[in-house]
Structures are given as C-alpha cells and as structure tokens.
Simulated scan of single mutants.
Amino acid sequence: MFSIGDFARLGLVSVRMLRHYDAIGLLRPAHVDPASGYRSYQAAQLSRLNRIVAIKDLGFTLEQVRTILDEKVSAEELHGMVRLRRAQLEAQISADLARLRGVESRLRTIETEGRLRAAEVVLKRVSPIRVAELSARAASYDTAEIEPVIKPLFDELCRRVDAAEVRIVGSGIAYYRAEDDGSVMVHACLPVNVAAGPYDFLVHDLPGIETAATIIHHGAMEAVGATFQALAMWIEENGYRALGLAREISLHCPENLAEWVTELQIEVSGV
C-alpha cells in the first residue's frame, strides 16, 4: 500500500487531484484509516489512474471519463482515441495557422492602402485557349476556403494529364464561379493541344475575354488581397465595371511561395 503522497508521485499527478478524484468517486483509495482519515492506494490502481489522465487529456470531461472507464476501454481503444484526437488537433492547428496567415495578409493590405499601383494595371484582350480542367466546390471565396481546394485540384489534374500522356503547353489557369448558396466552384486548368477525348478530365475551350483589366501579383496567393484591391480601385476610378470573378494565371510557381508570379485578370466593361 502507498500513502497518497507516494501514490501521487508514482502516478505523476498532484495530491490535490487524487483527493478530487476520490471526492467525485472516480478513483477511491484502496483503504482509508477510520481514525486518521489517511488514504492508502494499491499499485494496481495506477492502471485506472493512467486511463483517467490519458482520457481527460484528450479533452473529455471527468463525467465522460467515468462513462468511458465503466465501459472498460482497452489500451488499443485508447490508442484509437489518441489517433482521432491527434487528427482533430492537427486540423485545428492548421485552421488556426490559416486564420493567422489571413490576418497577416489583411494587415499587409491595410498597410498598402492609399498606395495605388495604377501604373501596373494593363487592359488587354485575352484569347480563347484549349484547356484540360478539373473542378471542385469551396465553401466561399475566402482565401482560407480556396487554398485547401485549389492546390489538391491542380495536383490531381497534373497527375491525370501526365497519366494520359497529354502535353501541357502553357501556364496553369484558375477561375471561379459564384453559386447561389454562397459557395464557389473552383476550376483548375492546364493549356493543352488535344481534341476532347475519353479522358478522366474535361477538355474544352476556355472562352476569351474581350477586355480584361490585369495586374501582376508577386508572392504567395494567401497575400493576394492588396493586389486584388489595387486592381478593383483602378477599375472603379477609370470608369469600368467588373464582370465576375478573376482568373489567375500562374506565370511562375517555384517551391518558394514568396517567388510566385501570378497574373490576375478581371473582365470589365465600360460603365
């Protein structure tokens, strides 16, 4: 038998925690001296203590811990719970990091307010182009929603085009269609020079744009906000009206995202 202090040290917990577990009936001492009230524990009780701490640290309440223990959870089941919790935490961390990057991007946009890059905006005609295409839905046009959709889409399109032995003849193109429910259809395209055929991707002619206001964005797309807003300001101040969402032409895509070069194209008409 071990005193409460020794048992706490063996279990790597505090005496206060053991007293609380006793009070709520989660882990009773093996023996309580009727005269002194001193609590004593058996080494075998470390097994239950280990499970209590492990399950609690996964984010369960103590009441939920009691229910799980009553179902006599096995070590294998605990490992499964850990794997699930790890996946949840990793997803949460990823979402939090994306949110922080979004805030940083928004701050950069705020810092550039009033410094319009008018000289960098070019009006031009965009010719139709034959493309291989895959599409998927994003929850919204928010960069944090687009980013986890567009990259896997291009990765899969490249894989399928390579497997079909179709040659890519130009820069990647992304375009977007707003849906009535607020979601956005994301379209990933690669220029090709083949006829439509029995491929596991769509081959079609992406329509040209008679008049496109264009600007070059340097750097990662998560920081594109300031460039988009500069283009929008130019469109409004020069008496044009934007028609639909932008196309993004990936002119240079090295591994270092800071070195990316992307042309933004927005179809415009005179007011």
Score class of each variant (00 low, 15 high):
Tyr38Cys: 01
Tyr41Trp: 07
Tyr41Pro: 09
Tyr41Ile: 02
Ala44Gly: 01
Gln45Ala: 03
Gln45Met: 04
Leu46Val: 03
Arg48Trp: 02
Asn50Gly: 09
Asn50Thr: 07
Arg51Tyr: 06
Ile52Asn: 06
Ile52Glu: 03
Ile52Arg: 02
Ala54Glu: 13
Ile55Met: 09
Lys56Gly: 00
Lys56Gln: 10
Asp57Lys: 07
Asp57Ser: 14
Leu58Pro: 03
Leu58Phe: 10
Leu58Lys: 02
Phe60His: 14
Thr61Ala: 09
Leu62Gly: 00
Glu63Asn: 11
Glu63Phe: 06
Gln64Met: 07
Thr67Gln: 09
Leu69Thr: 02
Asp70Pro: 00
Glu71Trp: 09
Glu71Ser: 09
Val73Arg: 02
Glu76Gly: 05
Leu78Asn: 02
Met81Lys: 02
Val82Trp: 09
Arg83Pro: 02
Leu84Arg: 08
Leu84Asn: 07
Arg85Phe: 05
Arg86Tyr: 13
Ala87Ile: 05
Glu90Trp: 01
Glu90Ala: 10
Ala95Lys: 13
Ala95Thr: 15
Leu97Pro: 00
Ala98Ile: 11
Arg99Asp: 10
Arg101Gly: 12
Gly102Tyr: 05
Val103Pro: 04
Glu111His: 10
Glu113His: 11
Gly114Ile: 12
Leu116Ser: 09
Arg117Glu: 15
Ala118Asn: 08
Ala118Met: 12
Lys124Asn: 07
Pro128Thr: 05
Ile129Lys: 07
Ala132His: 03
Leu134Gln: 02
Leu134Trp: 01
Ser135Phe: 11
Ala136Gln: 13
Ala136Val: 02
Arg137Asn: 09
Ala138Glu: 04
Ala138Phe: 09
Thr143Cys: 07
Ile146Gly: 03
Ile146Glu: 05
Val149Cys: 08
Val149Gln: 06
Ile150Phe: 07
Pro152Lys: 04
Leu153Asn: 02
Leu153Ala: 03
Phe154Ser: 01
Asp155Ser: 10
Cys158Asn: 09
Arg160Lys: 08
Val161Gly: 06
Val161Asp: 08
